[in-house]
Design a protein around this nucleic acid. Structure first.
Lengths: 189, 189
DNA sequence: GCTAAAAGCAACAAAAAGTTGCTTTTAGGG
DNA sequence: CCCTAAAAGCAACTTTTTGTTGCTTTTAGC
């Protein structure tokens, strides 16, 4: 029942967007009485926070192919495939919109990404340990490869092709590897 | 009067967020009768679209220092200083949130970025013409340098320092310059 | 200083949001 | 199996928000 409602909430979010969301609408969609939602969550903010938190807790597998390039491409590909999903995209967009005004959302988003950058960062740490690249901030590398595709998907709206993903990873890696520009990597982007 | 209302709309957006925005609230803030707003814009979507469109039409100066690195750093620095402004940030966030559900917003955002990437891209084109870097997609370079800072500012929430901006530009430039990795740049990220 | 367009105003109507008291269902413990 | 407490359903209701309308007042341009 809880699951039904949270799913209905996400589905409704995808369809109408957060600003047009109502507890009544979700109740109707879930085939549930609105009183239940009012008693259990009170507001659409609380309900959606609950729904998103649930979904966002899914674990992602961390690749370990022995090549940083392969690992990163795999990781970014999975992240973006996920982001291009209607539900995840709606969740991310609503997170971006609400963060400044809903403290609970901001907290959740922040801790999600802290963990996520740390977890994904291990592929970078391994590469450093292997001597594949010089020491850099692992989280920064993840941001460097996720940034442009996210930017495309959410901001400029240009198509996020697989070539673009791979190209971004290659560009970043080349930058990290180049011996002539080592000095710029002190505080890695 | 129109200006007063649009300003009030943006101020209200910054304060309460789009989801909590109401024509009545804006009217109150602008010291104007709500009837006026209903007659002139009808909905908060229309009003905010108008407000944002107005603000987004400001022209940015395009640097031409003779060095791509300098040009890009200047450009990115200006863009991010702008983004870190409460008003612009609120506008960008609301654009991201509404794009999928408000066609007019999506259209505006899309054409804004198409133009913006083209305009900013001229610093890249000049560098190519100077032979400073090999031929690449200029818009892609702009996305590559704006992506990570935008990602930080809007998604991960980590602080966007000046070192981070410069580091991103350096990383991208190093990748572009490196002669051993030229092949990856065919369809530039 | 006349006039047409725009803004103000107050009084509504309509709809959405939220609440309440009570009934029904359901899951667990005896 | 049945009893019970918690959860869900239901319907009626209040309140708040949203949007509308007819009319008056202000204002800008001639």
């Amino acid at each position: 029942m809880r699951a039904t409602v949270l799913n209905a909430g996400l589905a409704e979010l995808v369809d109408v967007g957060f600003h047009a969301l109502s507890l009544e609408g979700i109740a109707r969609r879930a085939g549930v009485n609105k009183t239940t939602l009012y008693r259990r969550w009170g507001t659409k903010e609380a309900l959606m926070l609950d729904a998103i938190r649930e979904r966002a807790s899914a674990k992602v597998p961390i690749p370990d192919t022995g090549s940083l390039r392969e690992d990163l491409v795999t990781l970014v590909r999975a992240a973006i495939a996920n982001l291009l999903t209607p539900e995840v995209q709606a969740m991310v967009r609503v997170g971006i919109a609400l963060s400044p005004h809903e403290n609970a959302v901001a907290t959740m988003v922040s801790s999600f990404w802290t963990e996520r950058l740390a977890v994904d960062g291990v592929v970078v740490e391994r590469a450093i340990r292997r001597g594949e690249i010089p020491p850099v901030d692992p989280g920064g590398v993840i941001e460097a490869v996720l940034g442009p595709p996210y930017f495309r998907a959410l901001v400029t709206g240009r198509p996020v092709t697989d070539e673009f993903l791979a190209g971004t990873v290659d560009l970043v890696l080349t930058g990290l590897l180049d011996p002539e520009h080592r000095e710029v990597r002190g505080d890695l982007p």
